Measured scan of single mutants.
Amino acid sequence: PDLGLTQLFADPNLIENLKKNPKTSEMMKDPQLVAKLIGYKQNPQAIGQDLFTDPRLMTIMATLMGVDL
């Protein structure tokens, strides 16, 4: 199971919303991170391994779920 990750990354406004959010806007200036996020739309399971190697993803996930870290 993808634990709902498919829906989190399926939002067509995902990148724009993250660019507008004060907690994630600075991160979204990294083209490699943006490319990763776009890739998760097609393969949400890929985030599982990346969560352990890129701490920014935890902040992004929390933001998408509405959790304040």
Rank of each mutant, 00 (worst) to 15 (best):
L51K: 04
Q45R: 08
K36N: 04
A62T: 12
L37N: 00
M61W: 13
D30P: 00
N43Q: 05
E26D: 08
T24R: 00
T53D: 14
D2C: 09
A46Q: 13
D68M: 02
I15M: 06
T53K: 14
F9K: 02
I60R: 00
L18S: 00
P12Y: 03
L5T: 06
L8V: 10
N43V: 03
N17P: 01
P44E: 05
L14H: 02
G48L: 15
M58D: 05
K19T: 11
G39W: 15
L8S: 04
K20W: 06
P31N: 08
G4D: 15
I60C: 02
T63W: 10
N17V: 12
V67K: 12
G4H: 13
A62Y: 10
K41Q: 15
Q32F: 13
I15W: 04
K41T: 15
K41R: 13
R56L: 10
A46K: 12
L33M: 06
N17W: 12
D50W: 02
D11F: 02
L64W: 02
I47P: 04
E16T: 07
I15Y: 03
Q7D: 11
L33A: 01
L37M: 04
G39M: 12
Q45N: 14
I38V: 11
T53V: 09
F52P: 08
E26N: 08
K19Y: 06
Q7G: 11
N43D: 11
N21I: 04
K41C: 10
P22K: 06
F9L: 11
G39K: 14
E16R: 05
L33V: 04
N17Y: 14
L5A: 06
V34T: 04
K29T: 11
Q42M: 11
D68F: 01
K29Q: 10
Q42C: 08
F9V: 04
M28R: 00
P22Q: 05
P31F: 04
N13Q: 11
P12M: 06
Y40K: 01
Q45K: 12
M65C: 07
S25D: 03
G39N: 15
R56F: 08
K19L: 10
K20Y: 07
S25N: 08
Q45C: 09
Y40G: 02
I60Y: 01
I47R: 04
K41H: 14
M27C: 04
I47T: 04
P22G: 04
D30G: 00
A35G: 06
F9R: 01
L8A: 08
K36A: 08
R56P: 02
N13K: 09
K29S: 09
L3G: 15
D11Y: 02
F52V: 13
N21F: 05
Q32L: 13
N21D: 09
G39D: 15
P22C: 06
L69W: 03
A46W: 11
Q49D: 12
V34C: 05
D54T: 01
G4M: 14
N13W: 06
Q7Y: 07
L5P: 07
A46E: 11
